[in-house]
């Protein structure tokens, strides 16, 4: 049996199995490190950087950084919260995230992260307002990349779990976006039963299942009563935590 690795997150001692990432160890210890591109069941890719922590004073993505003995990890600090706020704000500004009319509202991880981080008003960045066509060609699935945050969860799920590679990145830099391996979704072998199409896979309202919009009433949606991360924090009150975040300056 391997000897557990001991390290600290915000001064709290945490144990990790060898090979675990900082985030996996934190999750097991009931400490929430915010994240968007990482989700249980998929290989981490460290692309959204919302899980940025400081390891012995240097920034790293907690989802890909292995836990190591005696490291000191900073997570819940004002400096990191402000980094995360900026990252999340930029995601809002790069796409067309119209929460009031989006069927993912209430279960959207981007929206929930905005609330958790205390982002409650428009910010200094310009809205890029892209005009991306909606692909509704498939009888069961819609792809609305206006709402995509390029987390790549659908890409990994389709490649690694479904074995189909329906989705992939196209373009570079600011033009990078999620595309499909055909002229449109209808031309692919995407299916409503794919893991890539499951509501839990897409963190926003980019991949949606036709005809299911607004079926879940307000009050019964994932984040209507508990902020994102509460499932990891367990007994720690989500509302209390959110207040803590709000107290940390800015908004």
């Amino acid at each position: 049996m391997n000897t557990p690795i001991r390290f600290q997150i915000d001064g709290v001692e945490v144990l990790a199995e060898p090979g675990q990432s900082i985030m996996q160890a934190a999750d097991a210890a009931g400490i929430y490190i915010p994240r968007l591109c990482d989700v249980e069941g998929l290989e981490p890719q460290g692309s959204c950087r919302v899980c940025t922590v400081k390891v012995n004073g240097r920034t790293a993505a907690a989802c890909t950084q292995p836990a190591a003995a005696d490291i000191e990890v900073e997570n819940d600090t004002l400096e990191l919260t402000n980094y995360r706020r900026d990252l999340v704000r930029m995601l809002f500004h790069e796409g067309n995230h119209l929460c009031p009319i989006c069927e993912a509202s209430g279960r959207c991880e981007l929206q929930a992260m905005g609330y958790r981080l205390g982002i409650s008003q428009p910010t200094k960045y310009p809205y890029l307002q892209p005009a991306r066509p909606v692909d509704a060609s498939h009888p069961d699935i819609v792809l609305d990349t206006n709402r995509c945050i390029r987390c790549g969860r659908c890409i990994r799920a389709s490649r690694d779990i479904d074995g189909k590679s329906v989705f992939g990145y196209v373009g570079r830099g600011i033009d990078k976006k999620v595309g499909v391996n055909g002229d449109n979704l209808l031309a692919t072998d995407a299916s409503i039963d794919d893991c890539a199409i499951a509501l839990e896979t897409c963190p926003v309202g980019c991949i949606i299942q036709k005809g299911m919009g607004f079926y879940k009433p307000i009050g019964e949606r994932s984040f209507d009563h508990q902020p994102i991360g509460s499932n990891i924090e367990g007994n720690r009150s989500g509302a209390a935590h959110r207040e803590e975040t709000w107290r940390q300056g800015e908004e």
């Binding site: 009031p100 009319i101 069927e103 066509p133 909606v134 509704a136 819609v142 036709k210 005809g211 299911m212 919009g213 607004f214």
Partner: peptide, 14 residues
């Protein structure tokens, strides 16, 4: 135009 039919009752009420 171009939006999905089940979104319409939520959008137009705005």
């Amino acid at each position: 135009r171009g939006r999905l039919l089940w979104e319409v009752p939520v959008i137009v009420q705005r």
